[in-house]
Simulated scan of single mutants.
Amino acid sequence: MSSKKKKWFIISLLVLIFIAYRTAYPFIREYQEANVTKETQQYLFNKYQEKFVVTDIRKEPLMQKYYLVAARAEDPDINFNVIRSIDKPFVYQDDYIAEKWYWQSSMILKPILDRNIKQTGYSFIINQRFQTEEYKEINEDFIKAQVLHPELSQVSLYILYIINKGEESKYKSTIDNLVSDIKKRNIKSLLLTVEFYDLSKYENKDDFEKQLKKIKNPTLFSMHKEKTLLKKYNIKIDNN
Rank of each mutant, 00 (worst) to 15 (best):
F27H: 14
I28D: 05
I28G: 06
R29P: 00
E30T: 09
E30A: 14
Y31R: 09
Y31I: 01
Y31A: 10
E33R: 01
E33T: 03
A34N: 14
A34R: 11
A34F: 05
A34V: 06
T37A: 08
T37S: 14
K38Q: 10
K38D: 07
K38C: 02
K38A: 11
E39R: 09
T40Y: 02
T40H: 06
T40S: 12
Q41N: 04
Q42F: 05
Q42I: 04
Y43W: 09
L44K: 07
L44V: 05
F45I: 00
K47E: 10
Q49V: 05
Q49E: 14
Q49P: 03
E50S: 03
E50M: 08
E50F: 01
K51V: 01
F52H: 13
F52T: 06
F52W: 08
T55G: 11
T55A: 02
T55M: 00
T55P: 07
I57N: 03
R58S: 12
R58D: 13
K59P: 00
E60I: 10
M63L: 11
M63A: 12
Q64C: 01
Q64Y: 04
Y66S: 00
Y66E: 04
Y67R: 11
Y67H: 11
V69C: 03
V69M: 12
A70S: 12
A70V: 06
A70Y: 10
A71L: 03
R72I: 00
R72E: 02
R72G: 00
E74A: 11
E74Y: 10
D75A: 08
P76T: 13
I78C: 12
I78G: 09
N79M: 12
N81H: 15
V82W: 15
I83K: 09
R84I: 02
S85F: 01
I86Q: 15
I86V: 13
I86E: 11
D87K: 13
D87S: 07
D87T: 08
K88P: 02
K88D: 13
K88F: 03
K88M: 07
K88T: 14
P89R: 08
F90E: 14
F90K: 15
V91Q: 14
V91P: 04
V91E: 15
Y92L: 07
Y92F: 14
Q93V: 04
D94K: 01
D95E: 10
D95F: 09
D95Q: 06
Y96G: 02
Y96S: 01
I97E: 10
A98E: 14
E99T: 12
W101P: 05
W101R: 09
W101V: 05
W103L: 02
Q104F: 12
Q104H: 08
Q104K: 07
Q104L: 07
S105N: 05
S105L: 04
S106Q: 07
M107V: 05
I108N: 01
I108W: 00
I108F: 01
L109I: 03
P111Q: 03
P111V: 00
P111H: 02
D114A: 07
D114G: 06
R115G: 00
I117F: 07
I117E: 10
I117Q: 08
Q119A: 15
G121D: 09
Y122A: 04
Y122P: 04
Y122N: 05
Y122D: 06
S123G: 09
S123A: 14
F124C: 01
F124I: 01
I126A: 02
I126L: 14
Q128V: 01
F130R: 14
Q131E: 08
Q131L: 12
Q131D: 10
T132G: 02
E134C: 03
